[in-house]
Amino acid sequence: MAGATKLMNLTLHVWRQKGPSDPGRMVEYKATNVSPDMSLLEMLDVVNDELTEKGEEPIAFEFDCREGICGTCGLVINGRPHGPNKAATTCQVYMRDFTDGDHLYIEPWRAAGFPVLKDCVVDRAAFDRIIQAGGFVSVNTGNAVDGNAIPIPKHQANLAMDAAACIGCGACVAACKNASAMLFVAAKVSHLALLPQGEVERTERVRQMVYQMDAEGFGACTNQAECEAACPKEISIDFIAKMNREFMRSCTLSQKSRGDSGGTG
């Protein structure tokens, strides 16, 4: 690493909103003497400490693991969800990715399905409800056969893993001009549809998840691939095509049987 690093000064424009019903506005802050090796979130921590010292309320934003896997963090930085880096989350943005004197516009995810709770913190419970609608295999603990009983071709397991890598951060929604959740839902639908374990409920799963996605108020897909470009796990829009196939298949195949019963659910 470089020895003597030049410190940077930046101007921040941050979305401040007291609560869900507050209209909110952009507020300007100065970030001074920023080390290029700092992460963006560490820089915001410093700004927050300064605000605290001045007796002002710090900027609320979310983070947890700070290594790009938990999916908690999420800021739109200069119009790009998770900032300027490819295949990275907000917590993986470093100040060296900007230049001295830059203006940073920092905003929350914008979607009807993700209401703002405070400042840059949004409520992503819609994603949980979509999973609750069908993003699982209905297998109770203790029912499993041996792990090697069903061989799965390596490339298929790999493809399922590509889809399963989704961290549920919501950047796809934030990036889409329609605030569409297609990439998130497609990743889960594809992950399970690609595996023999997910085969049994394949038809019903995609229906339930798509209906829930619509009920949550996300927009439709216009095939611009902005979600794929923003996704920190580089999940491909080919999975959206796969979900389109899966859903079409379910439209033609789905039969609701009213006669079934039993099971503890």
């Binding site: 699982f136 295999v137 297998v139 603990t141 203790g142 029912n143 499993a144 056969v145 041996d146 792990g147 090697n148 069903i150 061989p151 799965i152 071709p153 390596k154 397991a157 790999n158 399922a160 893993m161 399963a164 992950h191 399970l192 595996l195 374990q197 997910g198």
Partner: peptide, 21 residues
């Protein structure tokens, strides 16, 4: 049992070319 349970849930463990874990 854990491995079996997780496989049944659709956890995409790495596999060998023959399809085994």
């Amino acid at each position: 049992n854990i491995i079996d349970q997780c496989v049944a849930q659709g956890v995409p463990f790495n596999r060998e070319y023959g399809g085994t874990l």
